[in-house]
Design a protein around this nucleic acid. Sequence first.
DNA 1: GCGATCAGGT
DNA 2: CACACCTGATCGC
Length: 615
Amino acid sequence: MSSFAGRMKEYPTISLDRFDRENLHAQAYFLSHCHKDHMKGLKGPLLKRKLQFSRTVRLYCSFVTKELLLNNPKYAFWEENIVPLELESPTQISLVDEASGEKQEIVVTLLPAGHCPGSVMFLFEGGHGNVLYTGDFRLAVGDVSRMEHLHSGSRVKNIQSVYLDSTFYDPRFYQIPSREVCLRGISELTGNWISQSPHHVVWLNCKAAYGYEYLFTNLGEEFNTQIHVNSLVMFKKMPEILSYITTDRRTQIHACRHPKDEEFFLGNRLPCGCTAADGTPLRIISIKPSTMWFGERSKKTNVLIKTGNSSYRACFSFHSSFSEIKDFLSYLQPVNIYPSVVPIGRTLQEVTQMLRMMCRKQPDEAAIVYKPLGVLKRSRMQPPTNDSGSDEDLFEGLDLVPVRKKAYLNQEAERENPPETTAPPVDESVPLVVSDPQPVGQNYFDCTESNGEEDDDDEEEEEGKGDAAKGTKAPPKWEDFFSAEMLSDSQNSQSQSCCSVRTASPSRATGSQTPELFSDEEEHPDNEETFSLALSASLSDRSSQNIEDTLILHPETQNHPVQSEPEELPASQASSDFDVPGTPESKAPRPDELSQLYRKLASGEEVAIRERRFT
DNA sequence: GCGATCAGGT
DNA sequence: CACACCTGATCGC
C-alpha cells in the first residue's frame, strides 16, 4: 500500500494521491487513479472548506478517474474543481500562491499506467526539473520505450526523480506472468467450464476495486456474452466496458458480489442468488484473481491453481513485477528514485538501497568513487530553488534521501538475462534557463542536484538481523540480482546512440470493469427472489472428476517468445518536437468528443503506445 | 452521530 | 502468495 506522503521534493506546492495533513495547503492536486488508498483525505471536511474559499485550487486527473470519482456522491463537492486532462497532452498549469499572488508554471502530462481504468502517471516538467510520479502502474517490459512524452526526439528525457510504485520491487517478485498469459489462462478455464452445459457457470471472485474490467471485456468478447455485476452505474459513460457487463443474471459468467459471497459459494450459490429454474443445481466454479509471482529462475509459472473442489486462483497483477520495474527504471535512468511502497518483509533502507542501483550514475560520484582523493571538483549547477522551508518534513516518517547510484564492485557476474530494454541516451543537454515559462517540452534541469546529506549508509546489517530475529523468513539477498553486468549496463546504455525497441505485447493502458467501487454504494442483490435459468436440464456430468491439484496451465507452452522482433524502426527517428498547447485549465471537450474519449480510455485501448511514434 | 484508527478478514 | 478493500471495535469530538 502506498505510503507516499503526497508531495514531491521538486514541486512541494502540489499534492498527489494524498489530501490530508500537510497536503491541505497544496496549490494543486493530482489523483492518479480511483483506489481508496490513493484518496486519503479527499472527502475531508477541511478540504471541502478550502475549496469554498479558493479560486485557484484544482484537482487534475484523467477523464475516466473523474467519472469514477464523481460516481460517489461523497466526492461530488469536487465537481467544479476537477480538471480532467487527456492522456499524453502536455498541459501547462499555473500554481498560484493565493496569499502572495505568486505564480509558478508547470507542465504536466498524463501517461497511461495500466493499473486500472483511468490510471495514469504524471510527468511534470518545470523549473525544478522533470519528475515522474508513477502512481500505481503495471507496464510490460519495453512499454516505457514507446512512451512518446518520455522522449525528446530520439533521446530519453532527463528525469530528475521518479516517485515509484515499488510494490513489487523485490527479487522475490522477479517475474509475474504477463497480462496476456494470465488472461489466456482464465479464459481457457472459463471456456472449458461453461461449454459443458448451460448450467455450468463461472464466478469471478473479484475484490471491490477497479482494475478487473479488462478481464470482463475480454471474456465477454471471447464468449460472446456479458458478465453479471452488481451495478452498471459507474460505467454508464464508458460504453466499451458497459457493453460487456449486465445486471441480468441469466449469464454463465458472474462477477457479482455480496458481503457473504464466500459463504454463498460454499453452499453452491452465486452471490446474486441465481439458481436454475427447473431445480437443477448450477455447477459453479470460482476463479479468484490474485497475484502470483516467481523468482528469477523459477520454472514454475503456473497461472492457475486449483484451490478446492471447484475453486481456482488465477494469476492477476495490478502492479509491475521486479523485472518490469527494472526495465522501466533502467530505461529512464532518473537521478533519484523515491519508493512509495515498502514491500512487506523489507525495510525502507533496503528498498532505497536497491533503488540506488537503478539511478543514473552521477559523473561527480564516479569521481568520488574512483578517484578517492578529491580530484576534480566539478562545478555544479544549482537548480533554481525557491524552497523556502525545509524539505525534510515533507516526507514525514520516511527517510527519503535522494537515491543515487554508487559503485558496487563486488558482484559476481552471473547473469544470463540480457538487459531488458536498451535505453537511448539521456538528454542531458544544458537546460535553457527559464525566464519564460511557456516553452514546454524542454528540459530544464540539472543532473547534479543537491548532493548532499547522506549520512546513513550502512544500516542494513542491523536490518537483516532484525528480520531474522523476528523469525521472518529472510527475503533473498537483493545483491544477487544486480550483477556487475547490470550495473555496467546502465552505464553503457548512456553511450548508446540509438534506441532499440522491443515489441513486447502492448500493455493495456486502462483495463476496465469491476463491480462496486465505493462501499457506500449498496444495492445488494436481493437473494429472496431467486432467478431461474431457463435452460434445459441436459447436464453432462463430468463435474466431479478431480482435476489435478495444482497447476493447470503453463504459460510457457503458449507463450509466444517475446523476442525482440526487430520492429521497423528507422535508426534515425525524426525528432518531433512536441508542441505544447498552453492549456492551463484545459477546455472542456464537447460531449461527442468526450464519449469518444471515454471509450478509448475505458477500453484499455493502447492509447500511449503507438507504433507510429518513432517513424 | 461522525470520523479516525486499528485489528482482523478475504 | 502480500491487493484493495471490507467489517467491526474502540476512542475522541
